[in-house]
Simulated assay, not measured.
Amino acid sequence: MKDWWQETFPEGRQSLVITDANGYPVKIAYGEKGTGKPLFLLHGVGSWSYNWRHSVQPLSEHFRVICFDAKGYGFSEKAVFRREQSGHQIIELERVILSLCDEPVVLVAESLGALIALGLAEANPQLIARLVLVNVPIFPQQLPHWGMWLLSQLPLEIVQAIDSSRLAHLFAPLVREIMAIERRGVLYDPSILTQDDVYWITYPYTEIPGTLTKVAEELQIAAREIEHLQTDKPNLISKIQNNLGAITCPTLILWGEHDSWFPSSDGEKLRQRLPDAKLQILPNCHHDASTGASEAVNAAILNFLQETHFC
């Protein structure tokens, strides 16, 4: 099967080294296409750059599109023997942007990536010229999927043992079948998920050791954050919620009308808390908007950037 990075980006998969939140050098995988003002695409939990496969080409006709795998995801380095702290993604996102750009960027982010984008917009607002948030878990009640909950409950040592034994690789056809069922569950039209899609979505899990461990660790952090949010203990989510008024850059919120993970009513609550935000509900769309409603997402992004005079 042809390499997705080579097929998508003129220079294929590239890499850069940043210092992570723990102070260690880590290699980040990324691709870029197009020229002009920089536009970053940030994926959600358990995913990688492939989730933006339908957006790279259309957006690159107008912008320098940069798509990267966050640390621990996709083709980026997995520091499996170092434990993460809540908020590390915000620090690392900032360092990726600073490594690749010397001007404010458009940041387009989905799901957990969108929560991280909000955190960065509060911590370092001068980095972001425009913000696009897709189905962001800013008011979560719980982890939205049973598989996420299960991974968040397993001791990391057990997950790491499963990971290092390459069981996912040994049972790759079964892993792909399970992943296909689950990914179709967050699509309004499940039939749009192709066999190539299933292969690439699962590739990091079946072929790159450490992926499952790092995703499990991120889910454990997320579960702890949600628990602390609900019990009024210090947590990153409430910190981001309490500082939303500090985000002054023009912001577009996109939300799937039928998102069963995080209700679209959360989008309106978020819009009311942001000083300069617009909400657009995506019809016939569940949680995976970048795949299930890609044409509408791309059109909304371009219209927003034109309306706010960024093109």
Rank of each mutant, 00 (worst) to 15 (best):
D3G: 12
W5I: 07
T8A: 11
E11M: 06
L16H: 06
T19W: 08
N22I: 04
N22S: 11
Y24K: 03
V26R: 05
A29V: 07
A29D: 11
K33R: 15
G34A: 12
P38E: 13
P38S: 13
P38W: 13
V45R: 02
V45L: 03
S47K: 09
S49Q: 12
P58R: 05
L59Q: 09
L59P: 08
H62V: 13
F63S: 14
I66N: 10
A70I: 09
K71T: 15
K71E: 14
Y73E: 15
S76V: 03
E77P: 03
E77R: 06
A79G: 02
R82K: 11
R82T: 06
S86H: 10
Q89S: 15
I91D: 12
L93Q: 08
L100P: 01
C101T: 11
L107Q: 06
A109R: 11
E110K: 06
L115A: 05
L120S: 09
E122W: 10
A123V: 08
A123Q: 15
L131W: 10
L131M: 15
V134D: 09
V134Y: 08
V136L: 10
F139G: 04
W146S: 07
W149C: 08
L151D: 09
S152F: 02
E157G: 12
I158W: 14
R166H: 15
H169D: 09
L170I: 15
A172H: 04
A172T: 07
A172P: 12
V175W: 03
R176N: 00
R176L: 01
I178T: 11
A180V: 02
I181K: 07
I181N: 03
E182W: 01
E182D: 05
R183C: 07
R184I: 05
L187R: 05
S191P: 03
S191N: 13
T194P: 08
Y199D: 15
W200N: 13
I201D: 03
T202E: 09
Y205W: 09
P209Y: 03
G210R: 03
T211M: 03
T213W: 03
R224I: 04
E225C: 04
T231S: 09
P234S: 07
P234H: 08
I237T: 04
S238G: 10
K239G: 11
K239W: 15
K239D: 10
K239Q: 06
Q241P: 09
Q241Y: 10
T248L: 12
T248H: 14
C249H: 06
P250E: 11
L254N: 10
W255P: 13
D259H: 02
D266E: 12
E268F: 02
L270K: 04
P275V: 00
L279K: 02
L279G: 01
Q280K: 01
Q280H: 01
C285Q: 02
H286G: 00
H286C: 00
D288V: 01
S290P: 00
S290E: 00
T291Q: 04
G292R: 07
S294V: 00
S294K: 03
S294T: 00
E295Y: 06
N298M: 14
